[in-house]
């Protein structure tokens, strides 16, 4: 099989890193360069002094704690919810969250060092932590997760001053590197779990519409941070099952699209059905000649 070029195999990864860095740059351009297109930080921000955005989970905790009645905050949270209902819940994790590049590096290093999976707590752990946040906010009168949230500690630190915030970020990195493969983002982080719930209804999804061309090479499973989401779409027990990756755990990173040499995966809408010419591809095997 002919390998595609390096750029082609990292297309979505490169775009993702550009978006992540670009968003961070937009937030930092204000205090550092005096260009105020984007004010605030990931908790709450204002675009060009007009559109308010707020983190829905933070606003929910604030409401549970008996506050958070600001119109801008609630409107901003609804706007953000609407955005992620379109572009896919955990697109936040892959395209916005500044912790993601660090845990990606940790996971890469970990596999290069041959460290294996390490401690693997249940992936449902993050849902339990998420479920605990609202009652605990209500009881304590605090926005509980913001006391430890490494995402906002890192991003706020970069925009407003880091202090000792780097220790929390380093702890997450070392946890993923030395203790648990993809431990933070795929097992513990309740912010990802929250966006995962949003993703269950989101419009933009990765699908395996070209699954008939799959050669069982396993590249997608190896690169995916949530490999359990792939099988139901790629290798369903029922041949007529949807090829769309419906699990909210999928972070829409597009790495499976990148690494697949057989063009099995693509971004599409939730309603996309299996590419019908699948039979033709198998039978006529137009790709087979290219290999």
């Amino acid at each position: 099989m002919r390998r595609r070029g390096v750029l082609a195999r990292h297309r979505w990864l490169i775009m993702r890193r550009l978006v992540q860095c670009g968003l961070l740059a937009l937030f930092m351009a204000g205090p550092w360069l005096g260009i105020w297109w984007l004010k605030g930080n990931l908790a709450s921000s204002v675009i060009l002094d007009t559109v308010a955005l707020s983190d829905p989970l933070i606003v929910l905790q604030s409401l549970a704690a008996g506050q958070g009645r600001g119109l801008a905050a609630i409107g901003g949270a609804l706007t953000v919810l609407a955005i992620y209902l379109v572009i896919g819940g955990r697109s936040y994790c892959a395209w916005v969250c500044p912790i993601n590049p660090l845990t990606d590096v940790a996971a890469g290093l970990r596999s290069r060092l041959g460290l294996g999976p390490g401690w693997q707590p249940s992936r449902r752990m993050r849902l339990w932590i998420l479920a605990a946040l609202l009652p605990f906010s209500a009881v304590t009168g605090l926005i509980v997760w913001e006391l430890v949230n490494p995402i906002t500690i890192l991003q706020r630190g970069l925009v407003f001053g880091m202090g000792l915030g780097w220790t929390v970020v380093l702890a997450v990195f070392l946890f993923d590197l030395l203790v648990s493969r993809r431990g933070w983002c795929s097992h513990l982080c309740p912010v990802g779990a929250f966006y995962g719930l949003v993703g269950k209804a989101a419009v933009l999804r990765v699908n395996a519409a070209g699954r008939a061309a799959c050669t069982d090479c396993g590249a997608c499973f190896r690169v995916c941070p949530e490999p359990q989401v792939i099988a139901p779409a790629l290798k369903p027990a029922d041949a007529a099952a949807t090829p769309v990756i419906l699990s909210g755990d999928c972070i829409n990173c597009g790495r499976c699209i990148d690494v697949c040499d057989d063009k099995v995966f693509e971004f599409g809408l939730r309603r996309v059905t299996q590419r019908k010419p699948a039979g033709e591809i198998v039978g006529g095997s137009p790709k087979g000649s290219a290999r």
Binding site: G30, P31, W36, K39, G40, N41, A43, S44, S45, V46, S54, D55, I58, V59, S62, A65, G66, Q67, G68, G70, A73, S137, G141, L142, I143, E146, T152, R156, V159, F160
Partner: peptide, 19 residues
């Protein structure tokens, strides 16, 4: 707001800092 309420209301966004 009073400190107890402030802890629940402030989302730590820094818009006041930048304003």
């Amino acid at each position: 707001l009073a400190e107890e309420d402030f802890a629940a209301a402030c989302v730590r966004c820094g818009l006041c800092v930048q304003a």
